[in-house]
């Protein structure tokens, strides 16, 4: 991890409320692994004391990019980031996904901007699998082309049925699991808490490994403030808080204690 002053390469709308911000950040790009994030200081955000965390979407040739959705004061202020800006970021942070597979089939499950780290993950895997992308409507379904061009199978679900199948992402996942009773999948999920919980429960019940990337509001981003904690069950069965920013954001679903 380091503090890096990153210059803006491009900043474009990718659909709906989502934008891709591409930054020259050679030191972060040089060591980032899928599932890690950067903690970004939003420029010109008056009276703000906290950075905002974003998953690394791509990291290659000295360049990183993030894919973000405008949801509040910070992300709305990010819309004004332009070509001349130098951004202050800390990265890469967090543990990242264990990407090594021993013959298992990777199943990725994404909600909203959760596709960002999973696209990066797919790009480093030497096997192809299936990605399940869910969202409220067509506008929330991103990066389909990324996965298709890498040879992955894409299954889309939307709440309103405006694209793909109507329903929750777990509907498509459940069907896949039922149709492949002999398969040995490893699941990787990133998205809203409810989705992570549902994916985690299924994986634990079926004794499949599942890696969940948790989204918790952060302060420091480096493990110092204890704002971002998640209840985790240890090997001895005891429960304790782990820091999503430092011990995570990726946790084994079997260890996550849900509220």
């Amino acid at each position: 991890m380091q503090i890096e002053k990153a210059t803006v390469k491009t900043h474009e709308v990718v659909g709906g409320d989502y934008r891709e911000l591409v930054l020259n950040a050679p030191r972060t790009a040089g060591s980032a692994v899928p599932g890690q994030f950067v903690h970004l200081r939003v420029p010109r955000l008056d009276g703000s004391v906290l950075r905002r965390p974003f998953s690394i979407y791509r990291a290659r040739d000295g360049v990183i990019s993030i894919l973000y959705k405008t949801v509040g004061r910070g992300t709305e202020a990010m819309v004004a980031i332009g070509g001349g800006d130098t951004l202050d970021l800390i990265g890469p942070l967090g543990n990242g996904f264990p990407a090594e597979l021993a013959g298992e089939t990777p199943l990725l499950v994404a909600g909203g901007y959760g596709v960002a780290p999973l696209s990066f993950l797919a790009s480093v895997m030497d096997v192809r699998g299936t990605i399940f992308i869910g969202g409220a409507s067509a506008r929330d379904i991103l990066c389909v082309g990324d996965f298709e061009s890498m040879g992955w199978t894409v299954r889309i679900t939307t709440d309103d049925g405006s694209v793909g199948e109507q329903g929750l992402v777990t509907l498509a996942l459940d069907r896949w699991l039922a149709e492949h009773p002999e398969a040995k999948p490893v699941l990787y999920a990133c998205g809203p808490d409810g989705m992570l919980h549902a994916v985690g429960q299924r994986a634990v019940a079926a004794e499949h490994t599942a890696w969940l990337s948790m989204d918790k509001h952060m302060g420091c981003g480096v493990g110092a403030c204890l704002a971002c904690v998640q209840r985790i069950r240890g090997e001895d069965g005891s429960e304790s808080w782990k820091r999503v920013c430092r011990d995570g954001p990726v946790f084994d679903a079997a260890t996550v204690v849900w509220e």
Partner: peptide, 11 residues
Amino acid sequence: IPRMIEVRGGL
């Protein structure tokens, strides 16, 4: 949790 919230001029 939640244990922290940003406000104007602080947290």
